[in-house]
Computed example of a mutant assay.
Amino acid sequence: MSVISFDKLRDTREQPDAQFVRKDEHGQAMYLFALEYEMGPSTWSAMIWAYSFEDAERRVKAMRGSLAVCGQMHASIGA
């Protein structure tokens, strides 16, 4: 198994690949961030869009207090 240091990667890359960047309705760049959590003996992951690393941390903090399951996903329609 290979372990990747995200801190080192974040410091060495100026811009992420295009598939990991999108613009919000005001044209401001948002970036895709990986999240990690443990459940029992396993480690799981999820992804969120945020404006910066600090914004991603704020979003995770907000999730701790209000995250809820809305329903099962069945399809995705590209824009």
Rank of each mutant, 00 (worst) to 15 (best):
I4D: 05
E38Y: 04
Q19C: 07
D24S: 06
S52P: 08
A34R: 09
A56M: 08
Q28Y: 04
E38C: 03
M47E: 10
G40F: 01
E54A: 15
Y51E: 02
A56Y: 06
W49V: 06
R13A: 08
S5E: 11
A29S: 12
M47K: 10
A56L: 06
K8N: 14
R22L: 03
S45T: 12
L9Q: 15
E38L: 03
I4W: 02
S45G: 12
E54M: 05
H26Y: 14
R10E: 09
L9W: 13
Y31T: 01
L32F: 00
F33S: 00
S45L: 06
R13H: 13
I48V: 08
S52L: 06
A29T: 07
M39T: 04
A56W: 04
A34I: 03
Y31G: 01
K8E: 15
Y37K: 09
Q15Y: 14
M30A: 03
I4E: 08
S2Y: 11
S2Q: 15
E38V: 04
A56C: 09
P41L: 07
I4F: 09
R10I: 07
Q28M: 06
R22W: 01
T12H: 10
G27W: 00
M39F: 12
A34Y: 01
I4M: 12
L35F: 01
A34G: 07
M30Y: 06
E25K: 04
E38K: 12
A34F: 00
W44Y: 08
L32N: 00
M30D: 02
E54H: 10
